[in-house]
Write a protein that binds this DNA or RNA. Structure first.
Length: 494
RNA sequence: GACAAGGUGGCUGAAUGGUUAAAGGCAACAGACUGCAAAUCUGUUUUUUAUGAGUUCGAAUCUCAUCCUUGUCUCCA
């Protein structure tokens, strides 16, 4: 029997503003769509937070036994620099700047995106469709919205008629905006004259002569509007209605609002049951922006080669740090906070290793089953990973106490601890043990062992000057000695 | 300016009306271990929840005002 039949999962639905009991449209199956990146630059650390948040959702749904189809797109066309008529495609602009073919740009940054997410131990989505691979479907969707009377052609472009749509439906239902307010706040930009109303958005755009990325259509040569691809690809792979749609908070308006409008205009019903939005990441309390230098690339975070942080951080530490906050909260990225997470992460991993060495007793001093359920309760409460992590540290206390013979645990309870810790840490949270041993060859290990021997000989004759010199020199080289009752061991620090 | 989400201890970050009220991690302090450290383990400490008023038997949690932060309103996860 799958786990989800015993657990009640609640999801905070941005559409209703409430935590709702999760009931998939098809029993046992979940369709989830998350807006992927526009691959015109190196992946932004904030993007990574969003994708880690939804990786957690994906992992937990799978852990509960759902069959999940997770679709995440790659935007490789249609995303304009601005909405003005002369707006340039982001990919094309970057291609011009880097003197590359647009598809070389797409390839380069898609590879970077995949590499980075893999470092964070994100699972790949079930399907990763591209906008340029679905031009035909996008044209068909535009046609059907026109047929339904909710879009119009103007000068080779096709626009969605927001006011018309709003007569029978609610444009602004997700972002809690009123069309009247939008009208009041819209400036009259020059160059938007082909639209009936300024808040209408493009479904298809006419390609100006200098535009490289272009496709033939019933309205002339052009390219699809940015909001359209997500509607079309989610519809194609998940159906007219699906369970979960995720993305960053900043996409709520206009992007997701437009998706609801497009899907409804096309199929006569809203496309998504649960909307989820991951919040933003700030750096030292301020928003990340390239222009102010308050910005960091994942690659520089892992290497330590940056102006913002004092040292390098392992991707798993960063992931752990991110999961220590709720996905709905703004999270601030700072050196101090990362150092704290790193320590906590190591403590957690140490305890998991210790789990293998515990001695069993005839009875248990604690209720391990209740603890296990509290882990699930945390995750069932809208994927509350910080509370789950607090529970895991609760187990760390048990494990250490048992190790010091201050707490008795039965073999069965130790087994429950092992499987639950492993399930939660590695399957659900997606953490990875930092494997330092593999970085070193055996020759090097032997050399360190030799030095430890020499130091212990010195200690035996109380030549502490010599022994401390060895210890300190090794530490400088990044080898941390650990004297315990069982002898001296070491690990690599950074 | 409009709209949205927030402002909790030295830092990070849970908890949204109720047992002697504020999880967990880090830091600090103490103890164990050590030749001394480090590492590890154990214990302790701090705040009264931006500010001011209100609702309530009772509020961090609801209402109002003020200040501040972040986001959206043109593209952004």
């Amino acid at each position: 029997m799958p786990l989800y039949q015993n657990q009640t999962l609640k999801i905070y639905n941005s559409l209703t503003g409430e935590k709702e009991i999760f009931e998939p449209l098809n029993d046992g199956y979940v369709g989830m769509y998350v807006c992927g990146p526009t691959v015109y630059s190196y992946v932004h650390l904030g993007n990574c937070r969003t994708f880690i948040s939804f990786d957690l959702v994906f992992r937990y749904l799978k852990h509960l036994g759902y069959k999940v189809r997770y679709v995440r797109n790659i935007t490789d066309a249609g995303h304009l620099e601005n909405d003005a008529e002369e707006g340039e495609d982001r990919i094309t602009k970057k291609a011009r700047l880097e003197q590359l073919e647009p598809m070389e740009i797409v390839q380069k940054y898609t590879v970077d995106f995949h590499n980075t997410l893999q470092k964070f131990n994100n699972l790949p989505p079930s399907i990763e469709p591209t906008a340029t691979g679905h031009i035909v479907e996008q044209i068909e969707t535009v046609k059907s919205i026109i047929e339904n009377g909710l879009a119009y052609e103007a000068n080779g472009s096709v626009y969605f008629d927001v006011l018309k749509f709003n007569e029978s439906e609610d444009y602004g239902i997700l972002s809690k905006r009123k069309v009247e307010d939008l009208i009041a706040n819209t400036r009259d930009l020059a160059g938007q004259s082909h639209k009936k109303n300024p808040q209408d958005f493009a479904l298809w755009k006419k390609a100006e002569p200098q535009h490289i990325m272009r496709w033939p259509s019933p309205w002339g040569e052009g390219f699809p509007g940015w909001h359209l691809e997500c509607t079309v690809m989610s519809n194609k792979y998940l159906g007219e209605q699906f369970d979960i749609h995720g993305g960053g908070m900043d996409l709520k308006f206009p992007h997701h609002e437009c998706e609801i409008a497009q899907g409804t205009a096309c199929n006569g019903k809203p496309p998504v049951k649960y909307w989820m939005h991951a919040n933003m990441l700030t750096l030292n309390g301020k928003k990340m922006a390239k222009s102010t230098g308050n910005n960091i690339l994942p690659v520089d975070l892992f290497s330590g080669d940056n102006e913002v942080l004092s040292k390098a951080y392992h991707p798993s530490v960063v992931r752990f740090f991110i999961l220590q906050a709720n996905y709905k909260s703004i999270l601030d990225f700072s050196d101090e906070a990362l150092i704290a997470s790193e320590k906590g992460f190591e403590k957690l991993m140490n305890a998991i290793q210790l789990l293998e060495k515990l001695t069993t007793s005839k009875s248990s001093g604690i209720d391990v089953k209740a603890w296990k359920q509290s882990c699930y309760d945390a995750m069932n409460d809208d994927f509350n990973s910080p509370v789950l992590i607090a529970q895991l540290f609760e187990a760390v206390k048990y494990i250490n106490a048992c190790h010091h013979h201050k707490l008795e645990l039965t073999q069965e309870d130790i087994q429950t601890l092992k499987t639950t810790m492993s399930d939660m840490c590695f399957d659900v949270l997606g953490l990875q043990k930092i494997d330092v041993e593999s970085k070193v060859d055996s020759k090097q290990n032997e050399l360190i062992d030799l030095l430890i021997d020499l130091r212990n000989q010195a200690r035996a004759v109380k030549d502490f000057k010599q022994s401390d010199a060895i210890r300190d020199r090794l530490l400088e080289l990044g080898v941390q000695l650990k004297d315990t009752a069982q002898g001296t061991s070491y690990e690599f620090s950074n």
